[in-house]
């Protein structure tokens, strides 16, 4: 039996079905990401796990106990919100202590545990500050500490990094992952950012329109998308129709074919499929070329090794396609 098992979970508002027969599990200490475009039902699913939103039918079994009938207070689940949701009238210390005060622990016990958890998120110097005196990243670290201090059975993170700037986001990402590993916490993380999902997760549950599309580890999800949606959402796959794929490879395909831009190799014009560069964009470590080959437009990613290796727009090149990297998707 898994640590967390969600079976046949359903939720609708009026006539709109938010999600449909959701099944997934999480092992103890596993970091599972719910990934999907906005409106796919991932945030509502998370709120249902927390008990903040009721479900229509289905079971959520946590440590062998169905928690669907329990109130949020009884579930022993911690949650971090995108908006931080820190209590503005309390100091950092007061915010973190709130959950322990509700449990009516002794003052010395509260003081000790608040100190420990603030040290864990490197915020103990700020314990007397109020939330409005902190930056976004600091606020989110306090919110994380507040949800960890009660030692929850499950940690839920609802797009906790979306409101932060890129540099802080990266740092906090690593910090969350480190703490989660150290405490062996089972965490469910919601995001619409594929990079976040790929770098942080043990396993990714990709959702679209209230359904689970694919449930796999990052590597599988990236290299073997099950359908066109998965291929389109993860990475920047080239999606080709069967005819386009045949024009390029000479083989016949049953349906759409996906190929990742970095698995196409650029070579001398006489060596591969002849192609022409339309334009290029610099993504930093990678240069992305738009090329035209046999009347098919493709994206090709090349590692940006040096200024000299940059190819000018309009020149003729050759392309090599490794057939094993082509994936037929439904």
């Amino acid at each position: 039996m898994s640590y967390l098992q969600v079976t046949q979970l359903n939720k609708h508002y009026g006539h709109t079905q938010i999600f449909n027969n959701i099944d997934f599990t999480a092992k103890e200490g596993e970091f599972v990401t719910l990934l999907g475009p906005s409106g796919c039902g991932k945030s509502t699913l998370l709120r249902c796990l927390a008990g903040l939103t009721s479900v229509d039918s289905g079971q959520i079994i946590l440590q062998g106990q169905d928690i669907v009938p329990l109130s949020p207070q009884e579930r022993g689940i911690g949650m971090v919100f995108q908006s931080y949701a820190l209590f503005p009238n309390m100091t950092v210390e007061g915010n973190v202590a709130f959950g322990l005060k509700m449990q009516k622990l002794s003052a010395s016990e509260i003081h000790r545990r608040v100190g420990d958890v603030l040290a864990l998120v490197e915020m103990n110097e700020y314990s007397k500050r109020f939330p409005h005196q902190l930056s976004g990243g600091q606020c989110q670290r306090v919110a994380l500490a507040r949800s960890l201090v009660t030692q929850p059975r499950l940690l839920l993170l609802d797009e906790p990094l979306s409101a932060l700037d890129a540099r802080i986001r990266k740092h906090l990402r690593e910090q969350i992952r480190r703490i989660q590993r150290e405490m062996n916490l089972t965490a469910i993380f919601v995001t619409h950012d594929q990079e976040e999902a790929l770098t942080m997760s043990d396993r990714i549950v990709l959702m679209n329109k209230g359904q689970i599309v694919q449930n796999a580890d990052a590597e599988t999800l990236y290299t073997a998308p099950v359908n066109a949606f998965a291929a389109g959402f993860i990475g920047s796959y080239n999606l080709l129709t069967a005819e386009q794929a045949q024009a390029l490879t000479g083989q016949s395909y049953g349906g759409q074919v996906a190929i990742r831009p970095e698995s196409i190799v650029i070579c001398a014009p006489e060596q591969g499929i002849s192609a022409r560069i339309l334009h290029h964009s610099l993504l930093g470590s990678v240069v992305r070329y738009r090329v035209l080959a046999n009347n098919v437009e493709l994206s090709v990613d090349v590692l940006n090794r040096s200024v000299d290796s940059l190819l000018a727009d309009g020149i003729e090149i050759g392309l090599q396609l490794d057939l094993v990297t082509l994936r037929e998707v439904a």
Binding site: R75, A85, L86, F87, N89, G99, Q103
Partner: peptide
């Protein structure tokens, strides 16, 4: 809403959350 949700998850009843978290703000 988020403040109430956060307070609920930390174990506060709706009364306590309203009194300790919403009212002072």
């Amino acid at each position: 809403r988020d403040l109430m949700d956060a307070a609920h998850l930390l174990g506060a009843s709706t009364w306590k959350a309203a009194l300790l978290v919403v009212l002072p703000n």
